[in-house]
Simulated assay, not measured.
Amino acid sequence: MSDSNKTDFTNPSTFILLGIPGLEAAHVWISIPFCAMYVIAILGNFIILFIVKTEPSLHEPMYYFLCMLAITDLVLSTSTLPKTLSIYWFNSREIDFSACLSQLYFIHCFLVMESGNFVAMAFDRYVAICHPLRHSTLLTNSMVAKIGLAVVLRGSILILPYPFLVRQWPYCRTNIIPHTHCEHIAVVKLACADTLISSYYGLFVVFGVRGLDMIFIAVSYTQILKAIFSLPTKDARLKALGTCSSHLCAILAFYIPGLFSTITHRYGHNVPLHFHVLMANVYILVPPMLNPIIYGVRTKQIRGRLFQLFTHKGT
Rank of each mutant, 00 (worst) to 15 (best):
M1D: 14
M1F: 13
M1N: 11
M1Q: 13
S2N: 14
T7Y: 04
F9P: 00
S13Y: 09
F15A: 06
L18R: 15
V28P: 03
W29A: 15
P33D: 04
F34E: 10
A36G: 07
A36V: 14
G44M: 01
F46S: 07
I47N: 11
L49T: 02
T54W: 04
E55W: 01
E55N: 14
P56S: 08
P56L: 10
S57I: 10
L58Y: 07
E60R: 15
L66R: 02
L66P: 05
C67Y: 02
C67N: 14
D73V: 02
S79G: 03
S79Y: 08
Y88E: 03
F90S: 12
N91L: 06
N91V: 03
S92K: 14
R93V: 05
E94G: 06
I95Q: 06
I95E: 01
D96R: 13
F97A: 13
F97K: 09
F97C: 09
A99P: 00
Y105E: 08
I107R: 06
S115Y: 06
G116T: 04
F118E: 10
A120H: 00
A120N: 09
M121Y: 00
V127I: 15
V127D: 02
A128M: 07
L133M: 10
M143Y: 08
A145H: 08
K146R: 15
V152H: 08
R154H: 10
G155I: 01
S156P: 00
I157H: 07
L158S: 09
L158K: 02
Y162R: 00
P170R: 11
P170V: 07
P170H: 11
P170W: 11
I176N: 02
I177V: 15
I177Q: 01
H179L: 02
H181C: 14
A186R: 10
G202C: 09
F204M: 09
V206K: 12
F207N: 05
R210I: 10
G211Y: 04
G211D: 08
A218R: 05
V219A: 14
Y221A: 03
K226A: 04
S230T: 11
S230L: 12
A236I: 05
R237P: 04
L238H: 14
S245W: 12
S246F: 12
A250H: 03
A253I: 11
P257E: 04
T264I: 15
R266H: 13
Y267T: 06
Y267S: 06
H269P: 00
H276W: 11
L278W: 07
N281I: 10
I284T: 11
V286D: 02
P288E: 07
I293F: 06
I293Y: 02
I294G: 02
V297R: 10
K300G: 00
G304I: 01
L306W: 10
L306V: 04
L306S: 12
F307C: 13
F310C: 12
T311S: 13
K313V: 05
T315H: 14
